[in-house]
């Protein structure tokens, strides 16, 4: 009976406020940490493609969130990640980050993947395996091109002047 009451109460609130299930979690889902670059005009992604999602871009800004480009993956399966970028810098560090456990960061051991650190390899395909212990849900994936003197793998490091970050919704099923 209590479950019926809860469901009816939930429906009432849904009806009243247009809420979703996510509105009834104790904490709001965290967005990825905010980083930006001073200049993205020379070092940027031109394409990111994974699990059926392809995004062709031309460096539209140092910080981009493509909320409609959703990367949908399933636990335990491997997907090819295709990344195209351009750079004019002598050193580059291209990284991909996946919040597999949905804790709002990319700090866990298997959540950070180096795509390329060679300026001559600007078209890279990498196999990404979704961990079997990944948590189902809607999270984020981040792709960063860093150019210049520092090519840190820190997904939140924003002290660089050149580069681009692209964020995508990541749905783990």
């Amino acid at each position: 009976m209590n479950s019926i009451t809860r469901n009816i109460a939930f429906l009432a609130i849904l009806f009243l406020f247009g809420c979703t299930k996510d509105d009834f979690t104790w904490n709001v889902k965290k967005l990825p940490c905010l980083i930006t670059f001073y200049n993205s005009s020379e070092d940027f992604f031109t394409q990111v493609s994974m699990a059926g999602m392809t995004n062709n871009t031309l460096g539209t800004g140092p910080n981009n969130f493509y909320k409609d480009k959703i990367i949908k993956v399933k636990k335990g399966q491997a997907y090819d990640l295709l990344v195209n970028f351009q750079t004019t810098s002598p050193a580059v560090g291209v990284y991909a980050y996946f919040d597999w456990n949905g804790d709002g960061d990319f700090l866990d051991s298997d959540e950070s993947v180096l795509i390329s650190s060679n300026i001559n390899f600007t078209n890279v395909t990498k196999s990404i395996t979704v961990p079997s212990n990944a948590v189902k849900g809607e999270y984020y994936a981040r792709f960063i091109v860093r150019a210049g003197s520092t090519i840190s793998s820190d997904p939140c490091f924003e002290n660089d002047s050149y580069g681009e970050v692209e964020d995508y919704p990541l749905v783990i099923e």
Binding site: A9, I13, D23, W26, V28, L31, C33, E158
Partner: peptide, 26 residues
């Protein structure tokens, strides 16, 4: 990030209050 963190705390506070109210409703 600092502004975002503050905003996040505020959102979470709102969310918790909302949850308390919803709990009272329930």
């Amino acid at each position: 990030q600092s502004v975002a963190s503050e905003a996040y705390d505020a959102v979470n506070a709102d969310r918790k209050l909302f949850m308390v109210c919803i709990g009272a409703v329930g």
